[in-house]
């Protein structure tokens, strides 16, 4: 049975921790595009954990995972603005979880669910990292024009990863978990 979004049970706590660990761990793999921004396959982890566990787990694993990456590879700075961006993205990835026809563990989903996941995730990435860019201008005093370049680059890269890797990984998991009732041993 699926848990309500706000039910903060032990499994949710562990899912946040493990999701954050995976996101943080895989964030070390980047194909650089512009400074501080690149193609990060780790985005797919947010797609997967959002779809599997919902927006709360998506938000917090995104935030905690990002902080952990920064602590290890951030050059001694936690980029709070981008932490928020990862968190909002994770939240958006998790919205589809609320649909009763969608359950990755039981291999159930509709076409509409997948479209929702693709769109809500993409929008969340754009909004999330958009907020990060704006915060960078206000908190750090970065030049707005430069931030726009970074924003477009990161949004396009991350949305691509979300759609190509993330959504296809969720489809893969759905297929793995689908119960085939009419399996026969073939000759």
């Amino acid at each position: 049975m699926k848990q309500s979004i706000f039910n903060f049970d032990t499994k949710t706590v562990v899912a946040i921790g493990i999701g954050a660990a995976l996101y943080g761990l895989l964030s070390t793999i980047t194909i650089p595009l512009v400074p501080q921004t690149g193609l990060r396959p780790a985005i797919a982890i947010l797609t997967i954990f959002g779809a599997l566990f919902g927006p709360v787990v998506g938000f917090l694993s995104g935030a905690i995972g990002h902080i952990i990456t920064d602590l290890t590879w951030g050059g001694g700075t936690i980029w709070w603005s981008w932490v928020l961006g990862s968190a909002i993205s994770g939240l958006g990835m998790g919205l589809v979880y609320a649909s009763s026809s969608f359950n990755v563990n039981e291999g159930r989903s509709t076409k509409g669910n997948i479209v929702t996941l693709a769109i809500s995730g993409s929008v969340a990435l754009a909004v999330g990292y958009g907020i990060s860019s704006i915060l960078d201008v206000y908190l750090f005093g970065e030049a707005p024009d430069k931030m726009w370049v970074q924003f477009y680059a990161s949004a396009i890269a991350n949305i691509a990863v979300h759609l190509i890797l993330g959504v296809s990984a969720v489809l893969g998991l759905l297929k793995l978990n689908r119960r085939n009732s009419n399996l026969r041993v073939l000759k």
Binding site: G17, I18, G24
Partner: peptide, 17 residues
């Protein structure tokens, strides 16, 4: 519970690595 999620992440990163 949120704070403990941090702890779990730190605990299992090396295993998962």
């Amino acid at each position: 519970k949120v704070a403990y999620a941090f702890s779990i992440a730190f605990r299992y990163i090396p295993d998962m690595q």
